[in-house]
């Protein structure tokens, strides 16, 4: 049915079965979420705030436990079965250590895993040049712009050579130009590294531009309401952003999203 992209090898990477997440205060953050994600897909979780998209991402990473149901990543229950090498995580803020320079920030995951220094050096320099920050290794986070900090954050996530990249509204705080530039960079990372990406966003345009599949979620309780496969027309670029096909897809996803907002209004 959906043939997401040329670098998909169709093996199932993530399986969520009937997942609920109820927080201590009784808030139902996610209800009855079932989802399969194949290797090589670029999936966006799209929805209004409070729809549980970040919670879902945290559960997949193993940072949050499920209240009911199960999540497996690569055949193992989420949060186990790997030492974190397989997953890269990019937070909404760059989340860098202010006391460490760019090099040491990117080096951190390797240091925690005891990768030897020479090997680590090669890898850190590799990812830094990949995100175009080779000349900023000795800079401190406070000396960088928001976009550059986010690049460091992406480099840090990529330094362990993960199979799965989880991104939690990474570009929400950036200006439009930086954002679209970083969108292109994430796309090319995905295409060149055979990654699987889950990208949480509340921007319809961003999700349509990036993903091979958009999972639309609704709030209160957080749940999946639409699962929309998008045309496989990679590589996408500025031309696609200006094309009528893009606009059409945006309209379609928008109306799906608006349905969820309407729901919320009725409930309140």
């Amino acid at each position: 049915m959906n043939d997401p992209s040329q670098n998909a090898d169709q093996g199932e990477l993530i399986a969520m079965r009937d997942v609920d997440k109820v927080f201590g205060n009784g808030t139902v953050a996610v209800r009855d979420m079932s989802l399969n994600i194949n290797q090589g897909e670029f999936v966006s979780f799209l929805g209004p705030s409070g729809c549980g998209k970040s919670t879902a991402l945290k559960m997949i990473s193993g940072l949050l436990s499920v209240s009911r149901g199960s999540i497996t990543v690569n055949g193992h229950p989420a949060g186990s079965g790997s030492d974190g090498n397989d997953i890269g995580y990019v937070f909404q803020e760059a989340t860098l250590m202010p006391w460490a320079n760019v090099y040491d920030n990117v080096y951190l995951p390797l240091k925690l895993h005891g990768v030897n220094k020479a090997e680590a050096r090669t890898r850190v320099e590799e990812v830094l040049s990949m995100v175009g920050l080779a000349n900023f290794a000795r800079s401190y986070p406070r000396e960088l712009s928001g976009g550059m900090r986010m690049r460091v954050s992406i480099a840090r996530a990529m330094v362990t050579r993960p199979k799965l990249l989880l991104m939690d509204e990474p570009f929400a705080a950036l200006d439009e130009m930086t954002r679209s530039k970083l969108n292109d960079e994430v796309l090319s990372l995905w295409e060149s590294h055979g990654l699987t990406v889950i990208f949480v966003t509340h921007s319809v345009y961003e999700s349509v531009y990036l993903s091979s599949r958009v999972v639309v979620m609704a709030a209160r309780p957080g749940r999946v309401v639409h699962d929309i496969p998008l045309p496989d027309n990679y590589p996408r670029n500025v031309d696609y952003r200006m094309s009528s096909a893009f606009t059409e897809t945006c309209k379609k996803v928008s109306s799906a999203l608006e349905g969820t907002l309407h729901n919320v209004d009725l409930n309140h």
Binding site: L63, G84, T95, W99, A100, P109, L112, H113
Partner: peptide
């Protein structure tokens, strides 16, 4: 310590000592 950084250390399964040394002390 920043809660996202804490999460990051959990994600990379840092040992308590690593967490103390590289995150909590700074």
């Amino acid at each position: 310590a920043d809660h996202n950084l804490r999460d990051l250390f959990s994600l990379y399964q840092a040992t308590p000592l690593q967490r103390l040394r590289y995150l909590l002390v700074p």
